[in-house]
Design a protein around this nucleic acid. Structure first.
Length: 500
RNA sequence: GCCCCCUUCGUCUAGUGGCCCAGGACAUCGCCUUCUCAUGGCGCAAACAGGGGUUCGACUCCCCUAGGGGGUACCA
């Protein structure tokens, strides 16, 4: 593994989201890289909220971002005292004043612009040396026109530079979309007389179709679903807003969520919170997004936070935008879940279900650990058992046609006959536990001269789950309980006879 | 339109002039294990965007074309 040169000064990195929404997956990766680099060189990783856009910023968004960063394990070193730009207006005004006095900036319609009258060259650790000619640069606004109350807010450009200087940030790690802003920032550092930081721009994370991964994708998905399903009446109180939503005049998340729940469609995961709800482990998410644009070489793909804290460097960051591959994330997650000690898996599953599927926790009671064990190696996410094991909570509403034909009605109802015969033997199975049930099933197989245990297991699966799929039949029956099994068989015999 | 950046299997990538008729992972497909599903084991298929140079030799260096991304805001 190649070695990254040690920086000549103490490292200070930062993550500076604007609190206008949830923590985006791309932001999480920027935070991860910043965290890892700081840890690698025993530096500091700082957080800052960029709330110069007062109208769109909110306290709630700040809280959510903090919660997600904590969940990921990327706690900032200034966690207890996070600066907000809105509290530092003086700093920006002082800088603006200075620039004005030096004649490097000028007023324009209430705003203040910085002169960009010379070529700007800078170096980026990922993209290399970049030069932009003066005639391609415009004088840009560094301070917006005053608010009604007289306060003056800086633009993002002035604010980042002043703040990064103020916080002593040495390495600015951020998304590639900022690369073309960097000449402005470089000029600002120079004009203000401060040493420039080291810039590190990372490629973007894209959707599988190559489009940018954005919050709007949720609205897009919901809108398409609504239009396909032809839902005309509003799922929310405000029909006008709904109409506007359908007309793409707004991308209201609440409306998208409503549509999704009504139609049962899944919205794409975009924010860290989405991935948490989908049941991905934070360590796996981190591992996967790190791989989207960075790798340690030597074909190493599975690694954790400590590994990154030891090996992360800018020299192995790629320049190409990467498409997000959910299948690979899911595969990593499944592998990680399977590798967990059973009791730890059960604990995590219980926590997840307590948050998102309370019915299971209530209904399963003491059987929850058994349930967890059954699904540990069958789950790609902590959410999978909720769908795969739905039948433990709700008896099947109907029976899958194909499964019925193949396992029950085929050969003159051979499967149904086996089911009926087995129902007779159930009371004799005592105690009702996995080994005893297995023994009962085996002797039934011999008695009826079945080719193998599947001859009775499959009919049972259909009766119990409505489909041909379940965990091992003995354990499934055991957890479901003797009475419930009898009831479901009886109901299946009745219903399927009627169908045939 | 103009400016900047990018381009290896379907996807993420290894590769820094000969080790590469290109390696790994996920996905796909096939076989084995098996009461279903899933696990596990084994295996197949699959890429250097195109065209010019430079060089004894190019995936690696240079140029052009095409395609993709970003910017062009008193949003960040």
């Amino acid at each position: 593994m190649p070695d990254t040169p040690s920086p000549s000064q103490p490292v200070v990195t930062r993550f500076a989201p604007s609190p206008t929404g949830e923590l985006h997956i791309g932001g999480a990766r920027t935070a991860l890289f910043s965290w890892a680099y700081a840890r690698r060189f025993n530096g500091r990783f700082l957080l800052r909220f960029e709330d110069t856009d007062q109208k769109r910023s909110s306290k709630q968004a700040e809280l959510n971002i903090l919660r997600d960063l904590d969940w990921l394990g990327l706690r900032a070193d200034n966690h207890d005292d996070i600066p907000r730009q809105s509290q530092r207006l003086d700093l920006y005004n002082t800088a603006t004043r200075k620039l004005l006095d030096m004649g490097l900036a000028y007023e324009d319609a209430g705003a203040v612009r910085l002169r960009m009258d010379q070529d700007v060259s800078f170096r980026d650790e990922v993209y290399g040396d970049i030069t932009v000619k003066a005639d391609e640069l415009e004088d840009f606004v560094i301070r917006k026109a005053p608010e009604a109350d007289g306060r003056t807010f800086p633009t993002f450009h002035l604010a980042v530079v002043v703040d990064d200087v103020h916080m002593g940030v040495t390495h600015v790690i951020r998304g590639q979309e900022h690369l073309s802003n960097t000449p402005k920032h470089a000029r600002l550092y120079d004009a203000l007389g401060h040493a420039r930081p080291i810039w590190v721009h990372t490629p973007s994370i894209m959707n599988p179709d190559g489009s940018k991964m954005s919050k709007r994708d949720k609205a897009k998905t919901a809108r398409n679903a609504a239009q396909q399903a032809g839902i005309l009446q509003s799922p929310i109180d405000d029909p006008k807003r709904y109409e506007a939503f359908l007309n793409k005049d707004n991308d209201d998340l609440d409306i998208a969520l409503h549509i999704a729940s009504v139609l049962g469609v899944e919205l794409p995961e975009i924010d860290v919170a989405d991935f948490r709800q989908s049941g991905y482990l934070p360590a796996v998410l981190l591992n996967y997004i790190a791989l989207l644009g960075w790798n340690p070489g030597d074909d190493i793909e599975r690694f954790d936070l400590p590994f990154m804290a030891e090996h992360f460097g800018f020299d192995r960051i790629n320049r190409k935008n990467a498409k997000f591959d959910r299948d690979k994330l899911a595969a990593f997650n499944q592998e990680a879940l399977a590798a967990l000690p059973p009791d730890e898996f059960a604990t995590k599953l219980r926590e997840h279900f307590a948050a998102f599927h309370t019915a299971f926790v209530e209904r399963l009671g003491d059987g929850f650990a058994t349930f967890a064990a059954m699904y540990q190696e069958r789950s790609k996410t902590l959410d999978d058992p909720a769908t795969l094991g739905r039948f433990f909570i709700d008896a099947p509403a109907d029976y899958d046609d194909k499964a019925v034909k193949k396992n029950l009605t085929k050969n003159d109802g051979e499967g149904l006959a086996m089911l009926a015969a087995f129902a007779e033997t159930i009371d004799a199975i005592e105690p009702w536990d996995t080994p005893t049930i297995q023994a009962g099933l085996e002797s039934f197989t011999v008695d009826k001269q079945l080719k193998n245990i599947g001859g009775i297991a499959q009919p049972l699966r259909v009766a119990i789950t409505g489909s041909a799929v379940s965990p091992p039949i003995d354990a499934t029956l055991a957890l479901l309980g003797q009475q419930e099994v009898k009831a479901r068989i009886a109901r299946c015999l009745e219903t399927v006879h009627d169908q045939a």
